[in-house]
């Protein structure tokens, strides 16, 4: 039975809002309801078609009433914030992530009509350390970096999802674990990080980065809503960039900071209202994280259209980031200087 009445949480967020607009313009759905504590951005409201917005807090028991009275059969949980882009207070985010998910899932469990659940999660659940395998598969153990971070919220959240699966085996559950999202329009911790003129990195470490373009992330959530693809799937672009490589591509200045000094730098950035670097993020800069996207391609049936490099190039060009150090002109200069001077040393033939 295809989905008919869809409820999307977190529609004031980047991904949730766009998903609401996409689903709202899909004629196959009878009703598309978006809920959040604040309304979606104006540009989303303008484009959201048949979708409707209900101001509701998923931490409130009222959400169960909405689900049952609207006869919702598909719930898309996009309200979780794994890495808030800017400085955010920890307590409300954790409440939204953990308590909100608990409430929402409890409501789903009690609503007999609900038969599908799509959850947006993060690849940060795998953690990042010197002991981690280079490439994480879906069955790798979940070892968030710290017990307090956003990643551990996601692990808790996935635990509740598994609990729901146990109690309601009839619900089709799709969990998408996204790698860091990037794109010209989205505002994530990654996009803010590379927009800094001087990018702090960890001295002596060069992390491997895997990115997912926001349009791919959106397509995966949309496909999961439209089709039945139960399971847990890693979502990330093909290929890997080294952090230093990405910094060079964006024309930024790399500032290697000794590991011990990094927390103070991140505090500084947070204080300046620039980027909110959590402990998870710092470890990500250290060791990086790459996930295996084989099951996404084979079982889920979606191949990301943007590779990591293309997604990053699209971000750099779409944002019109003006390079602080222009690698191209520097290398052209080098060529101009080095090649003729090398010629002088060559005996003429």
């Amino acid at each position: 039975m295809p989905s008919n009445i869809v409820l999307v949480t977190g529609v004031s967020g980047e991904l949730g809002g766009k998903l609401l607009a996409r689903l709202g313009n899909n004629p196959d759905f009878e009703r598309v309801i978006g809920v959040d504590t604040s309304p979606p951005p104006k540009r989303v409201i303008a484009r959201m078609g048949n979708a409707e917005f209900v101001r509701a807090d998923i931490r409130n028991p009222l959400i169960a009433k909405i689900i049952s009275s609207a006869k919702v059969d598909t719930v898309v949980h996009a309200a979780t914030t794994a890495h808030p882009p800017g400085p955010a207070r920890r307590t409300p985010v954790k409440e939204m992530n953990v308590i909100g998910t608990m409430r929402l899932l409890a409501a789903c469990q009690r609503a007999p009509l609900v038969r599908k659940l799509v959850v947006k999660s993060t690849a940060a659940v795998y953690g990042a350390s010197a002991r981690s395998p280079a490439v994480f598969t879906e069955d790798s153990p979940l070892m968030p970096v710290s017990p307090r971070g956003f990643a551990s919220d996601a692990v808790e959240m996935e635990g509740y999802v598994r609990g729901l699966q146990r109690r309601r085996p009839d619900i089709t559950v799709t969990v998408a674990r996204f790698t860091s999202m990037i794109g010209p329009e989205v505002d994530t911790v990654t996009t803010r990080y590379f927009a800094l003129p001087v990018v702090p990195t960890v001295l002596g470490y060069d992390a491997r980065m895997q990115l997912v373009h926001s349009s791919d992330a959106l397509s995966v959530l949309e496909l999961a809503t439209v089709r039945d693809n139960p399971g847990v799937f890693n979502v990330g672009g093909d290929g890997v960039l080294a952090l230093s490589q990405a910094v060079r591509m964006a024309g930024r200045v790399e500032l290697p900071v000794p590991m011990a000094a990094l927390p103070s730098v991140s505090r500084l950035l947070r204080g300046a209202n620039l980027v909110d670097f959590s402990h998870d993020q710092l470890r990500l800069l250290n060791f990086g994280r790459v996930v295996d996207t084989g099951p996404l391609k084979r079982e889920f049936g979606y191949t990301p259209r943007w590779s990591t490099r293309e997604a990053f190039e699209d971000y750099v060009q779409g944002r019109a980031l003006r390079p602080v150090i222009d690698g191209r002109s520097l290398s052209a200069l080098l060529r101009k200087v080095a090649l003729p001077s090398a010629n002088e040393h060559v005996p003429s033939q």
């Binding site: 280079a134 490439v135 060069d206 491997r208 895997q210 290929g239 890997v240 960039l241 080294a242 490589q245 990405a246 910094v247 060079r248 591509m249 990086g288 790459v290 690698g327 191209r328 520097l330 290398s331 080098l334 060529r335 080095a338 090649l339 090398a342």
Partner: peptide, 24 residues
Amino acid sequence: VAKAVEFVRGRLTGEYDVDEFGFD
């Protein structure tokens, strides 16, 4: 020299490939 210049150019512009294990 030509090779070195080409190499430095790749490094400055980030135009090189790294595999999923970080192999360059």
